[in-house]
Design a binder for these strands. Structure first.
Lengths: 188, 188
DNA sequence: GTCTATACGAAGATAGAC
DNA sequence: GTCTATCTTCGTATAGAC
């Protein structure tokens, strides 16, 4: 089926970005991880590495977005736990060796177009998470502000968890976030 | 004076880590930025690049630590603003092209020793910021938990600010953090 | 302390055969 | 679609002169 090899490469790129960042996500490592053939790199990605990374950033963004959409209908504090749980799962599954691919691209890619793409992903997360909070009964402006804080603090906590090889940062942050959200949410 | 060239290289490494991450912080770029002579790299850093980066991580950590110590005596909400202000200054001065060197090493260095070093830095920040909050009247356990959340969310917000080229994430997060801290602090 | 020269590997990318 | 071969550039690191 057409499109299988490139898809596998993009998925591997997401994994490698989350683990080692932009420069360390090389064609060699992507091929090794995905099992894709070396000869067709520039057939599938004529613009080279930047094109592959751009696709990987989009995939990482879409995955989180799809996950966020599954929060619809949850009470506000459970939305917080679900989002934190996404990062907890990434950390545990990787034994604290992986984090957020979009964050990694933001801080280690020098290509402006990729950073812009990362910004668009963060914005899309903000909007959808804000919607989920709004549907949980939080007023619109507060919901958008809270969504931003939830994303920023979970991203930061995930980095601290990786460094310290512990879930404590994410757990502590999530507890504070629940308090923040509960203060704006209607009583359940 | 002995030690000037290596110091300049370490300072440049901090800057380059904050801007481009671990792999992109090469000897070439460090020499170019610092003006240090190429011939003495391995005289000053016999263990090579990892030794330089380790020194840079320590310097970045110590700088933030010294800054955090200047918070002693401030009311709790002002401690939040001061810490957020540190990152705001980094973003503005670099026109949104730099962030935290310690975070960059955590997510883009594959050398375990360097990640451990980054973890130690984060821990030292947690302790000192916790002390500052405790001196502002917050109960010990709460102060330590709040310090962790402040660090994690400012780190994450700084990444979002870089991506979006805007201070909004940091401003929104700081406002939420002030609320969180005020709820635990004695009335001023 | 600083230099040049050099070794070695790995990166991204291109050309052309199959 | 996939291969091999090759080019160029750049990275870390070492050796030895000054």
């Amino acid at each position: 089926m057409t499109g299988e090899a490139p898809e596998a490469m993009i998925a591997s790129a997401v994994k490698l970005l989350a683990k080692h960042g932009f420069q360390a996500t090389t064609f060699s490592s992507v091929l090794k991880d995905s099992g894709a053939p070396r000869g067709s790199i520039y057939y599938h990605f004529p613009e080279g590495k930047d094109q592959l990374i751009a696709a990987a950033v989009d995939l990482a963004g879409d995955r989180a977005l799809a996950f966020t959409d599954s929060f619809r209908g949850l009470p506000a504090t459970e939305v917080v736990d679900a989002f934190a749980g996404l990062w907890r799962a990434v950390l545990v599954r990787s034994e604290f060796s992986a984090g957020c691919a979009v964050l990694a691209v933001t801080v280690s890619a020098d290509v402006p177009g990729l950073v812009d793409r990362a910004a668009a992903i963060f914005m899309s997360w903000r909007e959808r998470l804000g919607q989920a909070l709004e549907e949980a009964g939080i007023e619109a402006a507060s919901a958008r502000a809270l969504a931003l804080t939830i994303i920023a603090s979970c991203e930061g906590a995930t980095v601290l968890c990786r460094a310290e090889r512990s879930l404590e940062p994410l757990d502590v942050v999530a507890a504070h976030l629940r308090g923040l959200v509960a203060a704006s949410a209607p009583p359940s």
